[in-house]
């Protein structure tokens, strides 16, 4: 859990020595804890997301460091999924959705006009709440990404990628004899791990996970969580979860969202043992949410 010190998370500096008082922009005061990192992959500054006129995310500033697992928690409707989806522009297809603020991935603007969204999504993979394999075979599911991005020139290379990805998601031993079987015939947990294999088959740098275990039983959840811990060695992972235990188990840092505001973000054990903001404390102690 304490690996974050190595990546150098800085404490939030309150500007001009201002106290943590509420302002119009930040009714819950400035974000507590350590929102910024030295070695940041995503640098997000004053990000607001609007659906039509209503703001779902209000002036959120946050860094996501290299090879960290950061989880977003908060009550339903707090905007954590929306925020996650702005990171690979999955909200683009929603009518009336507008993003303001600065968002960069490795120093490059995510929302600039010259940014190719296809290339962005090849670098920032995504796993969804409900397992959503294509109605095709296991093999075709995993091979789809590499195929469309032209990552393999020969069949043998593609086979390697498929095997590597399925091993990476811990599914290889279970499905290696049934690669041609339709993916939709497998259990929910297997389907979700297949979706993770599909996401990592294109070797993304970041994997976004939107409540990946909410449709799974406890045993499948344990497997996926184990997988997340393994993946964190080579990928940056951003995970939205409703389960505080899950956040505590898998993530290095935890960010608490409330009604579109980022209230607190800190090392996970810090958030769960000594939250700085009373809203965070109420949430993690189960008084609401």
């Amino acid at each position: 859990m304490n690996t974050m010190n190595a990546t150098g998370i800085n404490a939030a500096t309150t500007e001009g020595g201002q106290t943590a008082d509420a302002t119009e922009d930040r009714p819950y005061g400035p974000t507590r804890g350590q929102p910024f990192a030295d070695e940041a992959r995503f640098k997000l500054r004053d990000v607001s997301v609007y659906y039509g006129e209503t703001a779902a995310i209000k002036k959120v500033s946050l860094d996501v460091a290299r090879n960290e697992v950061i989880s977003f928690i908060g009550p339903s409707g707090c905007g954590k999924s929306t925020f996650l989806r702005t990171l690979n522009r999955m909200n683009d297809s929603i009518d009336g959705c507008r993003v303001e603020g600065q968002l960069t991935l490795d120093g490059e603007d995510i929302y600039s006009d010259s940014r190719d969204v296809v290339e962005l999504r090849a670098r920032v993979g995504m796993v969804f709440q409900k397992p959503n394999p294509f109605p095709k075979s296991i093999y075709d599911n995993v091979a789809y990404g590499p195929r469309i991005h032209g990552l393999a020139n020969r069949k043998s290379e593609l086979d390697d990628i498929v095997e590597r990805s399925l091993r990476g998601s811990g599914l290889w031993e279970e499905v290696k004899d049934r690669l041609d079987a339709p993916a939709t015939g497998f259990s929910g947990g297997q389907q979700q791990r297949l979706c993770i294999a599909r996401a990592i088959a294109v070797s993304p740098e970041v994997v976004l996970m939107d409540e990946p275990c909410s449709a799974l039983d406890p045993i499948a959840t344990a497997k996926v969580e184990e997988l997340i811990s393994e993946l964190s060695e080579s990928y940056t992972i951003v995970i939205v979860t409703h389960s505080m235990q899950q956040a505590a188990r898998v993530s290095d840092r935890t960010a608490y969202f409330h009604l579109g505001h980022l209230v607190e973000v800190d090392e996970t054990n810090q958030v769960f043992t000594s939250p700085q903001h009373e809203l965070t404390e109420s949430y993690i102690t189960g008084r609401f949410g």
Binding site: M126, F128, N132, F134, Y144, G145, I148, A199
Partner: peptide, 21 residues
């Protein structure tokens, strides 16, 4: 189902590929 569309977009399929594939 929108989930199929999202899945394809999430891997970086272009609009055309999502529709055709």
């Amino acid at each position: 189902p929108p989930s199929v569309r999202e899945a394809a977009e999430g891997i970086g399929a272009s609009k055309m590929q999502v529709v055709m594939h």
